[in-house]
Measured scan of single mutants.
Amino acid sequence: TGIVNVSSSLNVRSSASTSSKVIGSLSGNTKVTIVGEEGAFYKIEYKGSHGYVAAEYI
């Protein structure tokens, strides 16, 4: 489990890349469940599926 540490919002992406499609966003202080790690990204549970967020902001 981690907490989103941004002042505005954090993009949730379809894969572990900044060039991948943005599938949603999370606001600051949102609690997320981390299920894996790929490079600089965490794989998280997101809306019944999975998404990827930049690990530096969690």
Rank of each mutant, 00 (worst) to 15 (best):
S9P: 11
G24K: 02
V35M: 09
V53P: 00
V53F: 03
S17M: 07
V22E: 03
Y42C: 05
A16H: 04
G2H: 07
S14F: 12
K47L: 12
L26W: 03
S49V: 10
S20G: 13
L26P: 00
G28P: 15
Y42P: 00
K21W: 08
I34F: 03
S20K: 02
E38D: 09
G2I: 08
Y46H: 04
A55D: 01
R13T: 10
G24H: 02
I23H: 01
E56T: 08
S25F: 13
G39S: 05
S8E: 11
F41V: 02
A16G: 05
Y42A: 03
Y42D: 00
I34R: 01
E38G: 03
F41T: 02
S49G: 15
A54G: 07
E45N: 08
V32E: 00
K21D: 11
K21L: 11
E38H: 08
S27I: 11
A40N: 11
S15H: 14
Y52H: 01
E38W: 08
G51E: 01
Y52R: 00
K43C: 09
S19P: 05
G51D: 01
G51M: 03
V22T: 06
S25T: 15
E45Y: 09
N5V: 11
V22I: 14
N5M: 13
K47F: 10
G51V: 03
V4F: 05
T1K: 09
Y57Q: 06
T18K: 13
I58S: 02
A55I: 14
G39K: 06
I34Y: 02
V53A: 04
Y52N: 00
E37F: 14
N29S: 09
Y52L: 01
V35D: 02
E37K: 15
H50K: 05
L26D: 00
K31Q: 12
Y42Q: 01
A55C: 11
V4L: 06
S14V: 12
S7E: 10
Y46W: 11
V12D: 01
S19K: 12
N5S: 09
R13N: 08
N29Y: 14
V35P: 01
V6G: 10
S19Q: 11
I3A: 05
I58V: 10
I34D: 00
S49D: 08
G2Y: 09
H50L: 09
V22L: 07
S49L: 10
A16E: 02
R13W: 15
G28Q: 11
K43S: 03
T30V: 09
K43H: 04
N11H: 13
S25Y: 14
K43L: 09
L26C: 04
V6E: 06
Y46N: 01
V22C: 08
S8W: 15
G51N: 01
A55H: 07
S14G: 08
N5P: 04
Y42G: 01
I58G: 01
I34C: 04
K31E: 10
S9W: 13
E56Y: 10
V22A: 05
T30N: 05
G28R: 13
S14H: 10
Y57R: 06
S14I: 13
S9V: 11
S14C: 13
Y57H: 10
E38S: 08
K21Y: 08
G2T: 06
V22Y: 05
A16L: 04
G2L: 07
V32L: 05
E45L: 14
S8I: 12
R13I: 06
K21Q: 11
K47A: 11
V22F: 06
E56D: 08
E45K: 11
V35C: 09
Y42K: 04
Y57F: 13
G39Y: 05
A40H: 09
Y46S: 00
S15Q: 12
A40F: 08
Y52G: 00
K47M: 13
G24C: 07
K21H: 10
S19I: 09
S17K: 07
E56L: 11
K47S: 08
S25E: 10
G36Q: 06
N5H: 09
A55N: 06
S49F: 10
G24I: 04
G24T: 02
V53D: 00
S20E: 03
R13G: 04
I3N: 06
S14W: 08
E45G: 04
E56S: 09
S25I: 15
G39L: 05
T30E: 11
G28D: 08
G36R: 05
R13H: 15
T1P: 08
S15G: 12
A40I: 10
I23E: 01
G24M: 05
G24R: 02
N11Q: 14
T33Q: 09
I3K: 07
G51W: 03
K21F: 09
S25Q: 14
V4A: 05
E45H: 08
V53T: 01
S49Q: 12
K43F: 05
T1G: 07
N5A: 09
V6P: 07
L26E: 00
E38A: 07
V6N: 08
A55V: 11
Y57P: 02
S7Q: 11
K21R: 12
A40P: 10
V4S: 05
S19G: 10
S25C: 15
